[in-house]
Design a protein around this nucleic acid. Sequence first.
DNA 1: TCCATATTTGAGCGATCGTTCAAAAATCCG
DNA 2: CGGATTTTTGAACGATCGCTCAAATATGGA
Lengths: 164, 164
Amino acid sequence: MARPKSFDRENPGSLYDTFDDKHGLFLESVTLYRRTVVARRLEKLDEPGPARDRIAAFFEDVIRFSLGEGRLLGCLMTNSAIELAPRDRDTALAVAANFAEVESAFRKVLRRAQVAGEIAADRPVEDLARYLTSGLQGLRVMAKAQQDEAALRSVVRLMLATLD
Amino acid sequence: MARPKSFDRENPGSLYDTFDDKHGLFLESVTLYRRTVVARRLEKLDEPGPARDRIAAFFEDVIRFSLGEGRLLGCLMTNSAIELAPRDRDTALAVAANFAEVESAFRKVLRRAQVAGEIAADRPVEDLARYLTSGLQGLRVMAKAQQDEAALRSVVRLMLATLD
DNA sequence: TCCATATTTGAGCGATCGTTCAAAAATCCG
DNA sequence: CGGATTTTTGAACGATCGCTCAAATATGGA
């Protein structure tokens, strides 16, 4: 794990006073990330306007981020799921809770779309929300290997077609 | 990176004679993985029978692997995409080539399905193949966080519905 | 002001990392 | 056989890891 010199060469002690150990510091970082980065992103699904457009805009944002600002780092939750979750129970719990949160946000907007008549009332909202969450993770992986914006957009287009 | 003691405490030299360095060894491992594990899995898409059933069986295999034998390690290509690709050009190239290969295998089976009349001739095979590849990666991430077989299967069900 | 207490500091511990290489052992050739 | 060559061996290097703690400094109360 990268560590700025100011934290471990000049004054590692303060870090170990505040958090118990490296693992504790990491878990706190995950919590902070969820409360800021993830929360902010999910809020976008709640914005006014046609619910389906909100979902499309959400994925458009993710693509832009993945190919731009977040090209190197990607998403901490996706990275943690792949790198840490299988061998670290605490991380696994945090990641599972995060995915549940994302799913919940999708459910909310999908129900809104149903009420607005944009999505048929008999579509399985729970399954669709999970499907979108999984598809989101797929995009994050794909974006790391090929920076082809048009390709990623075509994936999103087919994902959104499932809502019809 | 895990290293069996026999390789680096008893005789690290032989390893450095065979491969230049740790990075070279890793790239050789990726190549071997693609030629064995990935190739074997993709062959399943070529087996006889209705093409759509082949795709369904393929994803069923992936779910079984992800929750069973591969629960801890997962897929080397997915892991490499997330962990290494953004900072290592060689890995990025190998992962991109791998995903292209997966996509190509999906295209092949989708075309077969079109010829057999199982999938409408006007469906965009290229986009669908990429969509399935991305969806596959999504499953691999989801499986690391929640070992819920029914949930993963419901995702696959919706993915396959896109083929209709 | 003076002492007690709290905070900041960075040197440094033992472990492991990626890697090298001299010495020992095995193998080959005449 | 014997000597030259190749292979095997594991000790060890410098860097970095996660982490600790005594000493230096700052701060608070009397």
